[in-house]
Design a protein around this nucleic acid. Sequence first.
DNA 1: CTGTTAGCGCGTTCAA
DNA 2: TTGAACGCGCTAACAG
Lengths: 350, 350
Amino acid sequence: MDSRSPRLVDVARRAGVSTATASRALNPTTRGVRDANRARVLAAAEELGYTTNLAAQTVARGRTRGVTLIVKAMPDDYANPMVAGVVNATHREGLPLNLVVAGSGTDDLVRAIDAARGRRAQVLMTIGGRFVDDRGTDKMVTALERYEADGGRVVLITQPGLPFDTVAYANREGAKELARTLVELGYEHFAILAGFANGLTQRDRTQGFLEGLAESGVELSADRVVTGDFTRDAAYAAAGDLVRRGIRLDAIFAVNDAMALGALSLLRDAGPRGQGVAVAGFDDIKALRDVTPGLTTVHLPWDDVAAEAIRLALSERPAEPRVSVVRGHVVVRESTPDRRMHPTAEGETT
Amino acid sequence: MDSRSPRLVDVARRAGVSTATASRALNPTTRGVRDANRARVLAAAEELGYTTNLAAQTVARGRTRGVTLIVKAMPDDYANPMVAGVVNATHREGLPLNLVVAGSGTDDLVRAIDAARGRRAQVLMTIGGRFVDDRGTDKMVTALERYEADGGRVVLITQPGLPFDTVAYANREGAKELARTLVELGYEHFAILAGFANGLTQRDRTQGFLEGLAESGVELSADRVVTGDFTRDAAYAAAGDLVRRGIRLDAIFAVNDAMALGALSLLRDAGPRGQGVAVAGFDDIKALRDVTPGLTTVHLPWDDVAAEAIRLALSERPAEPRVSVVRGHVVVRESTPDRRMHPTAEGETT
DNA sequence: CTGTTAGCGCGTTCAA
DNA sequence: TTGAACGCGCTAACAG
């Protein structure tokens, strides 16, 4: 078959006008077409099943609408609330979305950024992916600057400290508040499932939690901060190691909810040794509504985050990069019962 | 700033060759460039931070790599296993992915298809979105045919019966097996949370379940098949209505796991009236591992489904459309305990 | 308001 | 193996 798509010339010919007029009629941006002609062009396009060749349009215009979202991985268990938020927000705005899963290396990230530049995409957003003291950060910044120099807009999500518009969560503060709350509830012996040692988000949450403990006068030895993958499965495994070590454990803080749910499952599966250990997470993902016991966590207003990211992206680029910090708050649920009311429940693990 | 991106000419000039040679050097597809020249071109590109303008390349070539995935909505609670599967599979294959959320109307779908054609995208995959007896199906098929006539490849997921390559799940059979299993376990009084009345997947699962019941000699009055949204929240609400109606209820079948989890939560929140009602779902999403009681469901091999879809998409278009049917199997968990062992537990709701 | 014409940046013949 | 020249489909500047 391969009966090639109709082109603008075909529409123009059929409508009895020039391609220029046809183009103008099709693109409401440009005014100045007699109604009669506009109608004929639209009719011709309809009859021919014409669709403008977006690639050609992009070449001619030099730029194309739409956002490119770079993420590190697409989880198949719990929805990433940020990804879902951005996907739905762009849909609402009628913006084409390009979802790119980049490897975790800096090179992969730079490649993805360059590819977006090659696509002449209007806005570029990235979630996660930044590392602490990563030598590659410079390369990434350079790539992003090239992208902006080329006329694109960059919005970083949760990666404060870079010279671009940013939507950041108050990770450290939220974790600190969570730690204080747990201590108040009567917990003393903690462990942290910290994710990647050098992931920025993970580090901030871990450090915030440690600070909160310190302020409340609770110590935490380094061997109780378990690093590893940032996933539910890794957390399940890590919690297992923790339990097998036989240390005294009142509560586990996992740096995100998916990990916390994994830990919770391990404790459940572990039998008696897992009983009585509390768990807390971070994010307050929607799935928590269906989980028992309810998971104590730090709530973040995800819809606001996504909306804010889009807002920044669509506004004029300011002289100085803007940083919107979104604050969360602790939500206490049944996974961290009040121990002060059950003083006898202490010491159920060894 | 707007210091425009370097173009191929710039690279060519810097390497001291023509744009033709530069193009050939950059595209490994074309052979026949002296190694020395190739090296100089690559070096020049590197130094300039050159990235091919994909739009221009697409115009010149007439087509571009990558898959466009059309979905109806992006859930923010549980990951859609198909979406996650396709996202990750395309990433593995190094294929650019365009994720499009189309409205549920046929027009939205047709628009999305035409847009993909306008983008000259290589392959188009759609998940869901087909309706029973929808007058719009013809329009959709026409749009897809135009897309294929234009050189693209179409792969439909879970929408059997259309003249395109298709990956279908055995929805009806799985639901039928589930119904038989539940009856064997001793359940008699069912209700179904059926989702959209005219959604194809939902209808197949509902009808399969009804058939299974019928074969097992169990009747189900029409007022126990509750239609509505295909989401967790809608299911939560619908289960509430069910409970309030005060009918005798042994078990609820929800046509997907997210809905089942919503129903489970409602029953939990409903207090005594919700107790003793079993729940079963469909899909076996990963999140079920962290839920108690474990949810009885129909397992589908999601990784296989995504891989198969990609395989079909990347293979030559066959003369006759191919249909791969992926079969699932029932997994019984604690949400549907064996009632035959607890004859006294009967009739706990009214 | 409309048509002519000249690009946009790249791939690709066709000779050399 | 290489380069000159043309074409891809569309928009934008410039006349009219």
